[in-house]
Design a protein around this nucleic acid. Structure first.
Lengths: 156, 156
DNA sequence: TGAAAACCTTGTAGTCACTACAGGGTCAAC
DNA sequence: GTTGACCCTGTAGTGACTACAAGGTTTTCA
């Protein structure tokens, strides 16, 4: 298989395939006399494995880690569980913060009607009030105002 | 106020403050004879405004847009509503995909007990089965298997 | 007085997982 | 023989920072 065929077979962009090779996730394939890459079934499976993990939103570092276990089947699998657990924990933390965020945005959105001038816009007023240190609908007093953006709001 | 004082007052890293200036979000402050930046109340408010919007997970481009409205209070505010609505839509889409992801990870995690060798690990088996094109607990047949990572899984 | 620590400046490079080019080479069909 | 589809390598861009290098200034303390 040439690179574009592998790409078509897996739905992965050709440049992404070369990127995975450069990153050491996909082993370097054989080369034809003209320098073209030639892939076999093992590459296709490996690439599918990688994309499956990516669909689960795992980082390339996590996937590299999992691939180590595939290469060393005699290792204890406890660390695989730990990896999945930690990943799940991050997903849940992000879910929690996104849920809070949704509520804040809904409250903010409700503070403005339609069809007037920015000077009278409730949304802008709310945001400016917050900048003055006053309570805002999106971050009510006593509920903890994130002056500093916390890790959970930033992490991917 | 010098840059570190502004940083302490707002909880924002000094390098981030200089970054906002370079990006045109924070106006360039006055300079002392020695070249040190000197900020006033208006800068503090503007920076707090920016961080409040960042806490709502808005992009710097969105914030730039909002700041335009602060600068032009006579403009129609319809676009502010649109901006917040679109942002809310993105947050909800991400929430939906993260919810699905959580379920997938829980199913995957359940496929492995503890304390055995990687070769027998249910998680690894599931991931490898998926790479063989078989149905997996995390992406059951008929529920749509994302061979290609979809935008929703990628967007922040 | 002198030296160290704590500031400040600019500019550049790194993060992540790609994506998009530039500038070239190869190959098959017409 | 030329068009177009493919392939190669290498570099630069994305967003929102973060971290450093290499220098200048100011404050503090012995």
């Amino acid at each position: 298989m040439r690179v574009s065929e592998l790409g078509r077979a897996t739905g992965v962009d050709v440049e992404t395939i070369r990127y995975y090779e450069k990153e050491g996730l996909l082993p370097a394939p054989a080369r034809a006399a003209n320098g073209y890459r030639h892939y076999d079934e093992a590459h296709l499976e490996r690439l599918t494995f990688i994309r499956h993990c990516r669909a689960l939103d795992m980082s390339l570092a996590e996937i590299r880690h999992l691939l180590d276990f595939v290469a060393h089947p005699q290792a204890d699998c406890g660390e695989i569980n730990r990896l999945v657990d930690e990943h799940l924990e991050r997903v849940r933390a992000r879910l929690k913060s996104l849920n809070a965020l949704e509520n804040q945005l809904v409250a903010l959105r409700a503070s403005c009607g339609t069809g007037h001038v920015a000077a009278d816009c409730g949304i802008l007023h709310e945001l400016e009030a917050a900048a003055h240190g006053e309570a805002c609908v999106c971050h009510p007093a006593g509920k903890g105002h994130p002056a500093v953006i916390t890790r959970k709001a930033k992490e991917r």
